[in-house]
Design a protein around this nucleic acid. Structure first.
Length: 118
RNA sequence: GAAGUAAGACAAGUGAUCGCAGCUGCCAAUCCGAAAGGAGGCAGGUGAGGAAAGUCCGAACUUCACAGGGCAGGAUGCCAGAUAACGUCUGGUGGAGGCGACUCCAAGGAAAGUGCAACAGAAAGAUACCGCCGCGUUUUUCGCGGUAAGGGUGGAAAGGCGGUGUAAGAGACCACCGCUCCGCUGGUAACAGCGGAGGCUCUGUAAACCCCAUCUGAAGCAAGACCGAACAGAAGCGAACGUGGCCCGCCAGCUUCAGGUAGGUCGCUGGAGGCGGCUGGCGACAGCCGUCGUAGAUAGAUGAUCACUCACGACAUAACUCGGCUUAUCGUCUUGCUUCUUUU
């Protein structure tokens, strides 16, 4: 990913959970916190309640792919944590992508017009 | 052809675009570096499973512990073999099921001891409820005694079955079968066959405690090895400044050392390896020859979109590596064998 790296340490996740702003819809929960850097850092969390290893890996990839393909639209300098809710287990790419963009729009961190030009 | 049984193979496919992780090659130009090289870029090729799962056994490897012996705990439990090893596998023996192919079996010990056996039933290491027989009484009834052949209960009722016998019965006696012991024969053995003797008096349960025999040190790749910032530590040096009348000392600084945190490198994939052939063995397997190169991430890589085809796609994602076991699973195909039916 060009403008982003992944969020790795547990302490980073905890920091975002504690200090960030959260919004949710049917399938996802998104936590946002400004990190003061020029890059975005993205973390994805899928609980074991959602499904077995295959389901969890698939959801992680769908979210990562959704973010990657729409990276240009996101504002930078943010720490983003995306938590998958239980009912998202059997959803396909388009539903996950729409959920992700919907949440980003709620947070006001994306620029929809740049997508229209592209 | 139908039904079944055993063994094995596969686990939707093709193309295009974008994306991810190692590897190989190239890079005059960007950044770091004295250089090697690295970051980055481009190209090529590779990239999860039959169970990768459960983590139930066994091993390899690593660290720690360790004179020797015993106890406790744990595991295994017919015999012989295979194997690095096993609780796995192979071939047998015995038992259970099936017409059969074939499948299944924690398959040592119940006179060492303890426990448990609900309910039913008269009685569960002992018994007489009904019944049968005898005697007494007697219209019936009732009482005493004998009896396990019959009924009923139960998972299980005192060896089975037929006869002799008897008041009725009973291994009381006899034949056959079974059980235990002894001998002989066959077999490496489990065991089988034959012969003889004995009693048939004492149920089941040891995936209940237990007894006997054999095995067994612990933890696990987040094992562990190496390099190694920062902070704090030790030793040495210590110009100037400060403390001080001055020296030592302290503070600051430099050098070295040990320690081993963040981080990095290794462990990390070529191995008791796959495939084919020959030889030995009933077989598990072993030996020899040829051939193949097949993931190594470290918050954790296999995805997305579009198009087409079909049977419309199950269970499920490597994390040090092997050998097994168990469990989950949409379906497709191959081969051997069995039973039945039809045709010749």
């Amino acid at each position: 990913m060009k403008f982003s790296e992944s969020l790795k340490k547990n302490s980073d996740f905890q920091k975002v959970y504690r200090n960030g702003v959260s919004k949710a819809n049917r399938y996802l929960v998104m936590y946002i916190m400004e990190n003061g850097a020029s890059l975005n850092r993205v973390g994805i969390s899928v609980s074991k309640k959602v499904g077995n290893s295959v389901v969890r890996h698939r959801l992680t990839r769908l979210i990562r792919e959704s973010y990657r393909l729409h990276e240009d639209m996101f504002h930078s300098g943010l720490d983003i944590v995306i938590v998958v809710r239980n009912r998202a287990g059997d959803k396909n790419y388009h539903e996950i992508k729409d959920a992700l963009l919907h949440l980003a729009n709620l947070h006001g961190i994306i620029d929809l017009e740049s997508n229209g030009k592209k």
